[in-house]
Design a protein around this nucleic acid. Structure first.
Lengths: 348, 348
DNA sequence: ATGAAAGCGCTAACAC
DNA sequence: GTGTTAGCGCTTTCAT
């Protein structure tokens, strides 16, 4: 037996002490730091020692306490992601890819929901910064100046996603919502649409697409005398019933409408459903364009024309950015516009 | 000025030191521990001191390092959740409720994806246990004996969800998938269905519903000579196209089918879509029952008859269980069957 | 109501 | 290649 038994230390009453590096070290007949090296930088340890340490780890069932390691090395290997909500399945693909890409590199995702209101953002930010994550991924750009300020101050790498801004906090992986609005409008115009209407969730990004659409419509002479496009707004997150109701209302006031751009595929599914229920035929009676290319879009009847965003790429790119930064590598091109694709199917 | 300037300590080269309790304490003219108490247990601190500390916190922009606190107090205020995947929107409601309920109480969610294969579960478990979370929420019950063993050994409170088992690791919030299969079958039988078919994702829980359905069908004499129910299996996570293809295939082999039970509302949407594309009428030509009552189910045309699971309640209950345990309160009834509800709409 | 000392479990820095 | 020492930032314990 090497030396002194472990001294009785401060210890929470009920809980049994868990196994530490020292326990493993004693069993392997080496020092604690050698165990640490064997696990983190095995190249620095002789083959024989390595084997002994691994055996000891196996026998004890030791799992390193990453909180303690993180505290000392100021690397938490934790990345925070903030989404407005999980309920609209829009960000799912991004979160899924992010989680997977981070896990591959030994990082773990912490999830926070900000809601669509700014108010909770502040408390959430405290909770996040308090864990000293190695990075923060925001869906959408950060709005309140206060929050921006704190994010800037704490020095944690930040990736804003799903949007573009001339003034990013740090890194950015996004695309132009205004351009989407414009391109969809131009597309509908080419298809012969002259009386478009909009059904839109009222979150910041959908409003930008709306703006782009209306502007293009005015330019193309699709707005009539009012210089605007009839719009039905639904509270975010937009869901199917909003689409059904939107179509009903818009049809009542604008029976001649010949195209609908929805701010989400879910709304578009609602429109398709309502049309079907009314015996209307899409695209013969009017065109429908969705947004998001959610997984059901291609399989609907008619297959939905929509705007595809590569959510997986957003997630993966964000993960790469954060990890590069965390490991001291510079990110060459920290602001990326990943664009979008108008996917032509049969609904328009 | 109180006393000695802070000694130059070990410090990572590039990074600026962040503000600590000591900085705040010095500014407020108190000791570090008093700052800690002012923030965590304000009742123990005099009103005047409290004010001084709060001012100092404000002025410095101090955000406590929860990793450090967690290390000392062995309370990480972190809860891990494991889902097979985020892609099927089935667990979304649970994760959303869980995140929200935890945030309310000052806990944060860590998300892990296990995939539907058991292989990654082990690595994921290490990553999770390494962070010493105050609790682990599993969607589905834990299968591999190895994983069960480690979970049991590490002493972290565990909630298994979305399923029932006679041998839970610890706590459980679920419902009986077999009963769902049976009840749906009985329901279809009452509605006059005699030639049912199944479209099912091939994950463990869907298979249990399948089993329940087949058993009830046999009992009710709905299976013909084969004592089984024609089934189209789709790989998990089940999506809409699987429903379309499933109906196509089943219709080809069993043109007399008069009812379809789908293991997910997404599959049911596929079935409805395919039926519509073929000019078939639901429920006149055959009945369709989904599973999950996803948010679009009620608004489809025809409105989808389905099985409702209260995912929000699962999330909230799990959060409450974990927090109670973490804060030393016993959970009176740690195994809960929350049941399910067959929601009758128009598709059956 | 407040403080001093100790140490949670790990790893950076510096020996050897 | 391996060990010693110290300390990450906080909170527990014990004293006043």
């Amino acid at each position: 037996m090497p030396d002194t038994p472990p001294p009785a230390k401060t210890r929470a009453p009920g809980r049994r002490a868990s196994i530490t590096v020292h326990d493993v070290a004693r069993l392997a007949g080496v020092s604690a730091i050698t165990v640490s090296r064997a696990l983190n930088t095995p190249a620095q340890v002789s083959a024989e020692t390595l084997q002994r340490v691994r055996d000891a780890v196996q026998r004890t069932g030791y799992v390193p306490n990453l909180l303690a390691g993180g505290l000392r090395s100021s690397k938490s290997r934790l990345v925070a992601a903030v989404v407005p909500t999980l309920a609209g399945p829009v960000f799912l693909e991004t979160i899924e890819a992010l989680t997977a890409a981070l896990a591959e590199r030994g990082y773990q995702l912490m999830l926070g929901q900000s809601g669509y209101a700014d108010s909770r953002e502040d408390a959430l930010l405290d909770a996040i910064i308090g864990r000293r994550p190695d990075g923060i991924v925001l869906t959408g750009v950060m709005h309140t100046p206060d929050a921006r300020q704190r994010l800037l101050a704490c020095g944690i790498p930040v990736v804003e996603t799903w949007d573009l801004t001339p003034t990013p906090i740090d890194m950015l992986v996004g695309f132009s919502h205004k351009r989407i609005g414009e391109e969809v409008c131009e597309y509908l115009h080419r298809k012969g649409c002259r009386r478009p209407v909009l059904i839109s969730g009222d979150d910041a990004r959908a409003r930008r697409r709306h703006e782009g659409f209306v502007r293009a419509a005015a330019r193309l002479g699709m707005t009539g005398a009012t210089a605007t496009v009839p719009t039905w707004w639904v509270p975010a997150p937009a869901k199917l019933p909003g689409g059904r109701e939107g179509l009903t209302r818009l049809l009542a006031e604008h029976p001649g409408l010949d195209g609908v751009f929805c701010s989400s595929d879910l709304l578009a599914l609602g429109v398709l459903t309502e049309a079907q229920a009314r015996g209307l035929s899409v695209p013969r009676d009017f065109a429908v364009v969705g947004m998001g290319d959610l997984d059901f879009a291609a399989s609907l009847h008619p297959a939905l024309t929509t705007v595809r965003i590569d959510g997986t790429r957003i997630g993966r790119t964000s993960a790469a950015f954060i990890v590069d930064r965390a490991e001291g590598r510079a990110v060459a091109e920290p602001v990326v516009d990943i664009g979008f694709a108008l996917v032509e199917r049969h609904s328009a």
